[in-house]
């Protein structure tokens, strides 16, 4: 476990690098944090670092966004904010995506806890000492 502090969005790229280095084998990443914590913002930085060229936006409306641009595969970006029952996530095909071997970045993973593979890399994002600061734990 390591804890890293971001004082501004400029720190996110460095933290994305640390995260990928800490979990070199992981494909499924779960991002925990309340609304406004910066989950989508961090995932955008992570995607950019991985070579994604598509526009990374909030998947709240679509539940799943698919991004391309990486040479060796796609990135799936999930947001289970609007899911109420586990069954709904199953019906979206969440498990097939998680098992696909492609990168999966998941917002609001609490709602699909039972579906997450054991080897899921968990990232917690919390507000720090002021509203601009974020504490990353992974």
């Amino acid at each position: 476990m390591q804890q890293v502090i971001a004082h501004s969005v400029d720190d996110l790229d460095r933290i994305a690098g640390l995260l990928l280095a800490a979990h070199p084998q992981a494909k499924v990443f779960a991002f925990y944090g309340e609304m406004g914590a910066g989950k989508t913002t961090f995932i955008r930085t992570l995607c950019a670092r991985m070579g994604v060229t598509d526009n990374v936006t909030s998947p709240t409306f679509a539940i799943i966004n698919e991004y391309h641009g990486r040479r060796d595969g796609a990135v799936f970006h999930f947001d289970f904010y609007r899911i109420n029952k586990l069954q709904e996530a199953r019906e979206v095909g969440a498990e097939s995506y998680f098992d696909s071997g492609e990168y999966c970045f998941i917002e609001w993973p609490e709602l699909v806890a039972e579906l997450l593979p054991d080897e899921t890399a968990k990232v917690h994002i919390a507000r720090g000492e002021d509203d601009q600061t974020r504490v990353f734990t992974f």
Binding site: T40, T41, R44, N55, T57, S58, T60, F61
Partner: peptide
């Protein structure tokens, strides 16, 4: 275009 959330969202 929006770089994060949509206006309706």
């Amino acid at each position: 275009q929006t770089i994060d959330d949509a206006a309706g969202e």
